[in-house]
Nucleic acid binder design. Structure first.
Lengths: 203, 203
DNA sequence: AAGAGACCTGAATCAGGTCTCATGTTTCTC
DNA sequence: GAGAAACATGAGACCTGATTCAGGTCTCTT
């Protein structure tokens, strides 16, 4: 099933329209990451995209809407990356660690995008929540299956998933964004210890 | 040493000035929590505080400044609450869990304030970082001492602290703010399991 | 090559915000 | 109780930025 890309008002777009929409989204990504939502403006986005101001409204109804679209897109990309990586693991711990690795690499490559998600908290609370709920869903599934296979202790998969997701995110923030942009080896090793502790500890 | 409260430009305030400044801060807390930073305005804050627009500038130089002040204040209150609670523990695990409990209670009582911190990410990156660094400092100290006393496994206190702090925050978000406003007992129990696993797992 | 529609434009409009300032009020001090 | 200092005010000057619109241009299709 091919996605039909639409502009504001749901009108279908031709090849050229799709391309312009993509340019606007990329420009928005840049501008929101650099300036933050409050200081980003439609003019700056259209300038960065190289189109006229009016063109913006052919594709998005408002600043809010393009922001939400951006978060959706970013969310899809992170999850895809993590899913691919963790599917290569042979047991839950390995999968979990591969997923973390992918997340850290994504953070290294897209420090700006990482920040965009954080802004969603107040720009678009629904998208903010959507992001974390979709992110946690993958974890929860994985943990449930692992538990059924006896690979973990008697854990609560849901709560555990939220805790692990948060830890990964914060450690990315602390050691990549507030560090030198690269995740140090020792941190990866300690994360492995922490994940193992969380998965194995009995009640 | 008594703090001398100052207004914009560092001028000292009389009793009445201190009171007005406090009213402005409380109003700002309300407005930022309800509307979010982008939609909050000086006018709305002064209205909520019951003072004239011009009065604002007698106390704060800008919207940014009052926001930063608010985060500082909030940060101080959370840490004080957690410190008090955890000091009643007889070992690290107990202290840790008491600290989490205090954090959850704070979140229950101040759902709006919790949100304000998240907004700081872009409004005032320095204050955002300040918040997490001061929050983690307490954890790190506690874990270092516990490790020296042999109460934990061979952990890296710093990385472990950031992971635990993040987990607590996210679980508050998920089960209090996105739940029914109260932390369920089963979640508290699972958090205890998770914290224990993190503190005890060996490399 | 002509008509239809999709696409594009940026000046103009409009809503709302920040911050200043001239003026008035209160409180303190002697 | 008079002068000084602090405090308070809100109209309005000045911005900034979102959004509209009337008038183009491009690109398919036949």
């Amino acid at each position: 099933m091919t996605d039909i890309v639409t502009g504001a008002g749901g009108r279908a777009l031709s090849r050229k329209g799709v391309e312009t929409r993509r340019r606007l989204l990329e420009a928005a990504e840049q501008v929101f990451a650099d300036l933050g939502y409050p200081d980003a403006s439609i003019v700056k986005i259209t300038e960065a995209a190289g189109v006229g101001q009016g063109t913006f409204y052919l594709y998005f109804a408002s600043k809010q809407e393009i922001f939400a679209e951006l978060v959706r897109d970013l969310n899809r990309r992170i999850r895809q990356t993590m899913k691919e990586a963790s599917s290569r693991g042979t047991n839950r711990l390995e999968s979990e660690l591969l997923g973390f690795g992918a997340y850290f690499r994504f953070t290294e490559e897209h420090p700006g995008l990482y920040g965009i998600i954080r802004q969603a908290a107040f720009v678009s609370p629904e998208m903010f929540r959507f992001h974390y709920e979709t992110m946690s869903r993958g974890y929860i599934e994985g943990l449930r299956e692992a538990k059924a296979r006896g690979e973990t202790g008697d854990i609560d998969p849901e709560i555990t998933a939220w805790a692990l997701m948060a830890a990964g995110e914060m450690i990315g923030l602390r050691y990549i964004l507030w560090g030198d942009g690269r995740m140090p080896e020792r941190v990866v090793a300690e994360v492995a210890r922490i994940v193992r502790g969380v998965l194995e500890a009995e009640t």
